[in-house]
Write a protein that binds this DNA or RNA. Structure first.
Lengths: 152, 152
DNA sequence: TACTTTTACAGAAAAATATTCTGTTTTTAA
DNA sequence: TTAAAAACAGAATATTTTTCTGTAAAAGTA
């Protein structure tokens, strides 16, 4: 379970590009295929490596608007939270949802085609949820950084 | 450049798992290897597919705290923004940074081991930037959803 | 210490996958 | 109606992953 320096090097490489071959990695860290293969399998089995995914260009898919929604619920009870959570899990435009501290209850990140779609989402999907009391929208004007790479 | 239904099916699958083989995909959408291969290569070339990455378990890597920082700059000039942006790009604990509308200028997402690390980050790395005037921290209490999958 | 066990690694063989090639069918456009 | 282009299938080839065999180093035990 404890990661040594070799594990960390492998993880750093795989975070950057899941399509590096074992040979690529082996070359970069001066090892043979076997230990690289064994270590990757172990990291998968231990759940350090969660999954391999493909990142698509959101703008090229027509998603030109990103917004943060700061949501306040009507009540702070468990049932209210759970009901809200379940609804959110079924909304594909909500890519992040976190229960937070502060002046509101949830911070959501929404990726959506345009303002019209957002208007529709806001009015017909989010604000109509029985658990939702207040929504404060923060519009993204320009994306500076967005990465899946964690510091290791 | 226009995506047909087959392209979309391929993208939906690859978003979920970048390690699906061409054969897996071909079977799932009832095609032979050739068109699947050709289409994936085209989607890569056109930049619809941006990259393949590995998602790691942040908690197993010791990152137990996620926070949003709402940052206000001292001035709203181009130079101030650019200076801030460049500093952020060199901070590995900042996984998202967006210039936004509203009562503050930037929304940041920080992934970090614990409160002590955050204290250090806040005091020694973020608040000391000459462009930063105000920081409002929103702590994540519980993660409800976090996905790289875009609606297609 | 000597011995056993475990772990980490290398190299080679086998299996699976990606890539390339050839050719056919379908669609599109002249 | 014909020519050109696009989409696809199947087979051959190249590459990669996976498995197998064995060696060396490290860790644990009597």
């Amino acid at each position: 379970m404890a990661l040594d320096e070799i594990d960390k090097k492998i993880l750093r490489l795989l975070q950057e590009d899941a399509h590096y071959t074992l040979k690529d990695i082996a070359n970069k860290i001066n090892l043979s295929l076997t230990p690289v293969h064994d270590r990757v399998k172990r990291l998968e089995k231990d759940g350090i490596i969660e999954k391999y995914v493909t990142i698509l260009d959101k703008k090229k898919l027509g998603n030109n608007l990103t917004v943060y929604c700061q949501v306040t619920l009507t009540k702070q009870t468990y049932d209210t939270s759970e009901g809200f959570n379940q609804s959110i899990l079924n909304m594909p435009e909500v890519v992040e949802c976190n229960y937070v501290s502060g002046n509101f209850d949830y911070m959501l990140k929404i990726i959506i085609p345009d303002m019209e779609s957002y208007h529709h989402f806001h009015q017909k999907k989010l604000s109509v949820l029985p658990e939702v009391s207040l929504i404060n929208t923060v519009f993204v004007i320009s994306e500076v950084k967005s990465t899946t790479v964690l510091p290791i």
